[in-house]
Design a protein around this nucleic acid. Structure first.
Lengths: 129, 129
DNA sequence: ATTATATTTCCATATACGTGGAAATATGGA
DNA sequence: TCCATATTTCCACGTATATGGAAATATAAT
């Protein structure tokens, strides 16, 4: 829960949320701190502080490559945060959970891998009963 | 996205997150501001400020009942926030999305309604293809 | 009308947070 | 070794946020 709080505060800032969303679009490849600063039009040291906060919260990770430090999002972390919210919000409220579930399966409609695994999940669930 | 920011900042505070989670456990019934203040062991006016922020963000709503104002969580809003994060995080990353999907269906395993609706979603999805 | 209860608004204060200049650190190339 | 590049740390300043006392508002009961 303290992790969740850190992650929420990290995302609860316009610039950091923008950085995070930008990094999401870049996938695991990520981008060097300097490039992000240019893209965001922010001084390097200012951005560094933001990146370090996102990093402390576990939402992104930096790896050194030569002189650059490449930041990329930690997809597991955001998944964890989503689950935290989900468990919070769905405490005995199956309608909400189901509504979200529907939306998710909807979102992955065009994605073969996603559908296959969703099916697998469904199978496993049916087996369990 | 501005809504999401407001909601994130509202939850990014220890006390407010605690209030929110407490209200979640109470369901749509909610609780009067005063009771929440007692439960949280916080002066009424201080808590009032927190409630009003959660309310401005749309995460909770207050309805007057006699002298009391009853606050209860807005499940749609938290669902919306989850979807926002999900769309952000799953931009072309079906593994993550699927992992979360699996976790959700897992969470609702014991819940007949949830399963039924998950099945319905699954059906609809298969039809679409 | 008056009083009691529930909550909010106003306001002052303290603390936390975001920002960017200047200096420090780390790596790579000549 | 010396210089250039990439990023961070240090620090000071301004702004935003959280807090709670005191007064205001709103409802209900007598």
């Amino acid at each position: 829960m303290n992790t969740a709080l850190d992650q929420l505060s990290s995302l609860a800032n316009e610039r950091r949320l923008a950085v995070f969303r930008y990094l999401v679009t870049l996938g695991s490849g990520g981008a060097p701190a300097g490039d992000i600063a240019v893209y965001m039009n922010v001084p390097a040291n200012t951005l560094s502080a933001q990146l370090s906060q996102l990093s402390r919260a576990g939402l992104i990770t930096g790896r050194r490559e030569g002189r650059s430090i490449i930041y990329s999002v930690n997809f597991d972390a955001i998944g964890g945060l989503i689950l935290f919210l989900l468990e919070d919000c769905c405490n005995g409220r199956s309608e909400v959970q189901t509504r979200i579930l529907a939306a998710i399966t909807d979102v992955c409609r065009d994605d073969k891998d996603c559908l296959d695994m969703a099916d697998a999940v469904q199978m496993k669930k049916v087996q369990d009963e």
